[in-house]
């Protein structure tokens, strides 16, 4: 069975899903992540799904579970890079991924986590500001 690699960058764990995951792989990722959060003491998890061309209810549930588990372990999870077609399909499927924070890309995901950690105890969680206007390509 394939395993999805988990990278540690500073205080953040980065998971970039590059393969069409089987359900077992998804469950294994969930377990691996929980272990790594405890092991590293990281306070942020970024799951990059840019490469995923579909997210079905199983993967959607996995993302929700990871977010809940990491919250219990005092880490913030951000799902980044969801493709438009995937988002439209998820809405139609009836999955709104409540409780999951999202960002357009890894960079914004990192900013989001940084802001979250900066103003603890947090309030106004939904209004994540952008620090500086950056020239995007």
């Amino acid at each position: 069975m394939e395993r999805v690699p988990i990278l540690k960058i500073g205080d953040i764990l980065l998971v970039s899903i590059q393969v069409d995951m089987s359900d077992q792989t998804a469950v294994a990722l969930q377990e691996d992540l929980a272990e790594r959060i405890v092991e590293t003491g990281c306070h942020g998890v970024i799951i990059d799904i840019t490469a995923l061309d579909i997210v079905d209810s199983f993967v959607g549930r996995m993302l929700s579970t990871i977010a809940s588990i990491s919250r219990v372990l005092d880490a913030e999870t951000v799902v980044v890079g969801m493709r438009p077609a995937v988002a439209i399909t998820l809405v139609e499927l009836g999955l709104s991924l409540n409780g999951i924070r999202t960002a357009l890309n890894v960079e914004r995901g990192m900013e989001l986590i940084a802001i979250e950690r900066a103003d603890e105890p947090y309030d106004e969680r939904d209004d994540g500001p952008i620090p500086e206007p950056t020239a995007s390509p």
Partner: peptide, 8 residues
């Protein structure tokens, strides 16, 4: 809702 899922 779709935009939110994407982080916007």
């Amino acid at each position: 809702v779709a935009a939110r899922l994407m982080g916007a």
